[in-house]
């Protein structure tokens, strides 16, 4: 493919849009890692929960029950309500996962490896719950969920309204997270806990509730990512697998660091889209994982990571 500036510009926009969705997911990985020092591989499951709740609300749950069991929401505010429902649902599932699967382990051992393995188990459970409930088919969000308009920026460069939307929402939610962490009482407690969880308990912080809040926030962000990813790639029970890339982005940025997660995600999104634009779409994943390998070789802690302990 020949180099030209309109392709470059086009792919930079696409890359930022994809990277911003990765960032929503990567931040969730990093947030949980910063508090509990393990990579929560059930995070992709939260995303799928969000995606299906959104799809269900938009279509009146006809997938699960074979008919419309309740008034579908398009008539009632459409994607806004469905999105809110997805966020609340995924947040609740994230909290439930922590309480049922992680808390009993946390209370018995400080070995985070067990949490990691449990999270892989939860991810398989969530995936298969959806295979049983709604089948493994690929589903597209109903037409008209997101505006289909494209804007011509001249010189053959076009931007999809949905790409702009996902970029805008990602910025909005990441900004919201930043506000929560920097300006609120519980946000301060979370930052303290990221530094030293045990000592945070000595400050009168209910650590159990704090961990619940962290999972709820991670679940909300995963749901937003899930809605935009299902708009981009369609929805299926294994969609959560895509969070592998967000995880790679979080590692490249430095696990546990939120700015790192955002920077890593944008880099990854750009690298993916530039590869697709100038080399070949099939090389995207090769480039992504090569970046991970190179990063781990030259700077194992990532761009913003502090400790170089085992990042699993």
């Amino acid at each position: 493919m020949d180099f030209n500036f309109s392709t470059l510009f086009q792919q930079v926009i696409n890359g930022l849009s994809l990277g911003s969705v990765y960032a929503l997911i990567a931040v969730g990985y990093s947030l949980v890692y910063s508090i509990l020092s393990f990579s929560n591989f059930a995070h992709g499951g939260f995303l799928v929960v969000g995606g299906y709740i959104c799809y269900g609300l938009l279509t009146g749950f006809d997938v699960a029950f074979g008919r419309e069991v309740l008034l579908s929401v398009p008539s009632m505010g459409g994607i806004w309500l469905a999105g809110l429902g997805a966020m609340a649902g995924a947040g609740a599932v994230a909290v439930l996962t922590e309480r049922l699967a992680y808390k009993p382990i946390r209370e018995h051992t400080s070995m985070t490896l067990y949490l990691l393995i449990a999270s892989m188990g939860v991810s398989i459970v969530i995936e298969n719950i959806f295979v049983i409930l709604v089948g493994g088919r690929f589903r597209a969000l109903p037409q008209g969920t997101f505006p289909a308009a494209t804007f011509d920026l001249g010189g053959g460069v076009t931007v999809n309204a949905s790409d702009l939307l996902s970029l805008g929402f990602a910025v909005f939610f990441l900004g919201g997270l930043q506000f929560f962490l920097m300006r609120t009482r519980w946000g301060l407690a979370i930052r303290a806990a990221a530094c030293d969880l045990r000592t945070a308990g000595l400050m009168g912080v209910n650590v159990s509730r704090l961990i619940g809040i962290v999972f709820f926030v991670a679940g909300i962000l995963a749901a937003v990512g899930g809605v935009f990813l299902s708009a981009r790639y369609t929805l299926y029970p294994q969609l959560g697998g895509i969070t592998t890339k967000a995880f790679v982005a979080a590692v490249i940025g430095g696990l546990g660091s939120l700015p790192g997660a955002v920077v890593g995600s944008l880099l990854l999104g750009l690298a993916e889209m530039l590869t697709a634009g100038f080399v070949s779409s099939q090389m995207r994943d090769l480039v992504v994982f090569s970046m991970l390998v190179i990063m781990l070789l030259i700077k194992p802690a990532g761009f913003f990571g502090k400790q170089i302990s085992d990042k699993i």
């Binding site: 009482r185 301060l188 407690a189 930052r191 303290a192 990221a194 530094c195 030293d196 400050m203 912080v205």
Partner: peptide, 15 residues
């Protein structure tokens, strides 16, 4: 809390 400022450390003490 080494990553927090002096002020933030005191504020978390008042949690």
């Amino acid at each position: 809390f080494t990553t927090l400022t002096v002020l933030e450390n005191l504020r978390i003490g008042a949690f």
